[in-house]
Deep mutational scan, measured.
Amino acid sequence: MATGGRRGAAAAPLLVAVAALLLGAAGHLYPGEVCPGMDIRNNLTRLHELENCSVIEGHLQILLMFKTRPEDFRDLSFPKLIMITDYLLLFRVYGLESLKDLFPNLTVIRGSRLFFNYALVIFEMVHLKELGLYNLMNITRGSVRIEKNNELCYLATIDWSRILDSVEDNYIVLNKDDNEECGDICPGTAKGKTNCPATVINGQFVERCWTHSHCQKVCPTICKSHGCTAEGLCCHSECLGNCSQPDDPTKCVACRNFYLDGRCVETCPPPYYHFQDWRCVNFSFCQDLHHKCKNSRRQGCHQYVIHNNKCIPECPSGYTMNSSNLLCTPCLGPCPKVCHLLEGEKTIDSVTSAQELRGCTVINGSLIINIRGGNNLAAELEANLGLIEEISGYLKIRRSYALVSLSFFRKLRLIRGETLEIGNYSFYALDNQNLRQLWDWSKHNLTITQGKLFFHYNPKLCLSEIHKMEEVSGTKGRQERNDIALKTNGDQASCENELLKFSYIRTSFDKI
């Protein structure tokens, strides 16, 4: 039985969820670079991206490699990797027998973001014989899940209580170790020597080791999670996991709180800001991140802002960003909400898709409305799209047979046209069989910064309504002859009103 693990408890099935942008060198404390989270699957090609990484700022997932063999891993080693800020997950990587050479110096898994409450997941690794993470000293947050690894031993010899604050939620089941077939031998045991430290858990006094050649490092209890030197002297209180010299914040392997210019500090002093819960960055760093993602459509890219001495992905609820200094300031009234469309555009074809934009005031991208039916549609669209004030790209209304009016965009005031449909149009209306009105132009103002209007096959939309939009939106004169079809717009509506004058002759039985 794995020490510190839980057996036999019912657990939810383990679901495996399925960018080499360097964020800056980590400095003297770390020998390499800070790398983003990685999802490495199918083959070993991307694994080489770990070569210079000291910190993975995010998670590391290595999974679904069915053609790899043990010899493929023999020359692979990433000794610079010290810390993973989120979680480490391995799933069905064939041929991998140990992690001792792959990650010989991995010391800390912070667990800032977890995989279903777990910071370390080893699942269905069919050839893994031992973990071998002999320098792993601290899992700051989260638990361990090690399950269905039929060859995995050296679990009962690990004292997880020396690595985690609590072992109650560890789930370590259905491994070879369960069948008591392992016969784990710690260093020196074969020669009758006791080389590794022994600890007591559940009444068992057991030597602690990761492999037959690597003991588990056990520091004096007084050192807590700070770690200790090879001689057993406690590291500085700002260290986490390990250090090369005692009581020196510049000799830590990793930091308990924050890293700044080669030393570990309790908090980031001005003019620095907390970033990702582990390091200090200056304003320029946060500003660069903001600008890199301002026009990016890459998933996970955030326009970072500053709030409460932190550089964070977005302002919290009730705050909006001051564009001059990136500071989050309290909103006066309802907060603006910028919604970034991942692929640059979004099609609204149902109430469900409209709900995804609920509360958005600025759309960074283009909207395509293609709704053919739905219950209580006008009210639903207004509830979900009615706060949109600005669209950076274009607005396209296409084959939306259920629409009679666009009044559900009740606050839309600006279409920038930074991206144009077919390279020309910022407003595009095609084949809307029941569209009769755009907006009530006596109450609604709309500016279209650039781009043209396109109207074709809107049989109940009168040309007068379209011409009014040209005047109000500032697009009059931009359109070419064929942009607004004269014969297919309003051709099934009563669009022309003329005053009919009647004269009559009164007659009676005795007068003409």
Rank of each mutant, 00 (worst) to 15 (best):
His28Arg: 03
His28Tyr: 13
Pro31Ile: 11
Gly32His: 04
Gly32Thr: 12
Gly32Lys: 05
Glu33Trp: 12
Val34Lys: 15
Val34Met: 11
Cys35Asp: 00
Pro36Glu: 14
Gly37Thr: 07
Gly37Ile: 04
Met38Lys: 12
Asp39Cys: 15
Asp39Asn: 15
Asp39Arg: 10
Asp39Gly: 02
Arg41His: 02
Asn42Trp: 09
Asn42Cys: 12
Asn43Asp: 05
Asn43Gln: 13
Asn43Arg: 07
Arg46Pro: 07
His48Leu: 13
His48Met: 01
His48Lys: 04
Glu49Ile: 09
Leu50Thr: 02
Val55Gln: 10
Val55Arg: 00
Val55Ser: 02
Ile56Phe: 00
Ile56Tyr: 00
Gly58Ala: 01
His59Leu: 01
Leu60Gln: 00
Gln61Tyr: 03
Gln61Val: 08
Gln61Asn: 03
Ile62His: 01
Ile62Phe: 09
Leu63Asn: 01
Met65Lys: 01
Phe66Arg: 01
Arg69Asp: 01
Pro70Lys: 10
Asp75Trp: 06
Pro79Gly: 05
Lys80Gly: 11
Leu81His: 00
Ile82Thr: 06
Met83Cys: 09
Ile84Gln: 00
Thr85Pro: 00
Asp86Thr: 02
Asp86His: 15
Phe91Tyr: 06
Phe91Leu: 03
Arg92Glu: 00
Gly95Phe: 05
Gly95Val: 02
Ser98Lys: 03
Ser98Asn: 08
Leu99Pro: 01
Leu102Ala: 03
Leu102Ile: 09
Phe103Asn: 00
Phe103Tyr: 01
Pro104Ile: 01
Asn105Met: 04
Leu106Lys: 00
Leu106Val: 03
Leu106His: 02
Thr107Leu: 05
Thr107Arg: 03
Val108Pro: 00
Ile109Lys: 00
Arg110His: 04
Arg110Ala: 06
Gly111Leu: 01
Ser112Met: 13
Arg113Cys: 12
Phe115Ile: 15
Phe116Asn: 15
Phe116Ser: 11
Ala119Leu: 00
Ala119Pro: 01
Ala119Arg: 00
Leu120Trp: 02
Leu120Gly: 00
Val121Asn: 01
Val121Ala: 05
Phe123Pro: 00
Glu124Gln: 05
Glu124Ala: 03
Leu128Tyr: 01
Leu128Lys: 00
Lys129Ala: 10
Glu130Met: 14
Gly132Met: 01
Leu133Ser: 07
Tyr134His: 01
Asn135Ser: 07
Asn135Phe: 02
Asn135Ala: 12
Leu136Met: 01
Met137Ser: 09
Asn138Leu: 10
Ile139Val: 08
Ile139Leu: 07
Ile139Thr: 02
Ile139Ala: 02
Thr140Arg: 08
Arg141Ala: 02
Ser143Cys: 04
Ile146Ala: 06
Lys148Met: 06
Lys148Trp: 03
Asn149Pro: 01
Asn150Gly: 12
Glu151Ser: 04
Leu152Ser: 04
Cys153His: 04
Tyr154Ile: 12
Ala156Ser: 07
Thr157Met: 05
Ile158Val: 08
Ile158Phe: 06
Asp159Lys: 07
Asp159Ser: 09
Trp160Ala: 02
Ser161Trp: 04
Arg162Asn: 15
Leu164Arg: 08
Leu164Cys: 06
Leu164His: 07
Leu164Met: 13
Asp165Lys: 15
Asp165Trp: 08
Ser166Val: 11
Asp169Tyr: 06
Val173His: 15
Leu174Met: 13
Asp178Ser: 08
Asn179Tyr: 07
Asn179Pro: 07
Glu180Ala: 08
Cys182Thr: 10
Cys182Ala: 12
Gly183Tyr: 14
Gly183Arg: 07
Gly183Val: 10
Ile185Ser: 04
Cys186Ser: 08
Gly188Gln: 11
Thr189Asn: 08
Thr189Trp: 07
Ala190Gly: 09
Lys191His: 09
Gly192Phe: 15
Gly192Gln: 15
Pro197Thr: 10
Gly203Ala: 09
Gly203Pro: 05
Gln204Met: 09
Val206Phe: 15
Glu207Arg: 09
Glu207Met: 14
Arg208Phe: 15
Cys209Ile: 01
Cys209Gln: 02
Cys209Gly: 03
Cys209Asp: 02
Trp210Ser: 07
Trp210Lys: 10
His212Met: 01
Ser213Phe: 00
Ser213Leu: 10
Cys215Gln: 08
Cys215Tyr: 08
Cys215Ser: 07
Cys215Val: 09
Gln216Leu: 12
Gln216Pro: 02
Gln216Arg: 04
Lys217Thr: 02
Lys217Met: 09
Ile222Leu: 05
Cys223Arg: 02
Lys224Asn: 07
His226Val: 14
Thr229Ala: 07
Ala230Arg: 01
Cys234Gln: 02
Cys235Ser: 00
Ser237Glu: 14
Cys239Trp: 00
Gly241Leu: 03
Gly241Pro: 02
Gly241Gln: 04
Asn242Phe: 08
Asn242Leu: 11
Pro246Phe: 11
Pro246Ala: 13
Asp247Ser: 03
Pro249Met: 06
Pro249Thr: 11
Thr250Ser: 10
Lys251Val: 06
Cys252Leu: 00
Val253Glu: 10
Cys255Ile: 01
Cys255Phe: 00
Arg256Lys: 09
Asn257Tyr: 07
Asn257His: 07
Asn257Cys: 02
Asn257Thr: 09
Phe258Ser: 06
Tyr259His: 07
Leu260Cys: 01
Cys268Trp: 00
Pro270Ile: 14
Pro270Leu: 10
Pro270Trp: 13
Pro271Val: 05
Pro271Gly: 15
Tyr273Phe: 13
Gln276Asn: 11
Asp277Glu: 14
Asp277Met: 05
Trp278Tyr: 10
Cys280Arg: 00
Asn282Cys: 02
Asp288Met: 13
Leu289Pro: 05
His290Ile: 05
Cys293Pro: 02
Asn295Ala: 05
Asn295Asp: 11
Asn295Lys: 05
Asn295Gly: 14
Ser296Ala: 11
Arg297Glu: 10
Arg297Met: 09
Arg298Gln: 02
Arg298Glu: 07
Gln299Met: 05
Gly300His: 07
His302Gly: 14
His302Ile: 10
Gln303Ile: 11
Gln303Thr: 11
Gln303Ser: 11
Gln303Met: 12
Tyr304Trp: 15
Ile306Gly: 12
Asn308Asp: 10
Asn308Phe: 12
Asn308Ala: 06
Asn309Ser: 09
Asn309Tyr: 06
Lys310Gln: 08
Lys310Asn: 11
Cys311Tyr: 03
Pro313Thr: 10
Pro313Lys: 05
Pro313Trp: 15
Glu314Pro: 08
Glu314Tyr: 04
Gly318Phe: 08
Gly318Gln: 10
Gly318Ser: 11
Asn322Trp: 07
Ser323His: 14
Ser324Ala: 15
Ser324Phe: 05
Asn325Arg: 11
Asn325Cys: 11
Cys328Thr: 03
Thr329Glu: 01
Thr329Cys: 05
Thr329Ser: 11
Pro330Trp: 07
Cys331Glu: 02
Leu332Val: 02
Gly333Arg: 03
Gly333Ile: 03
Cys335Leu: 06
Pro336Gly: 04
Pro336Ala: 04
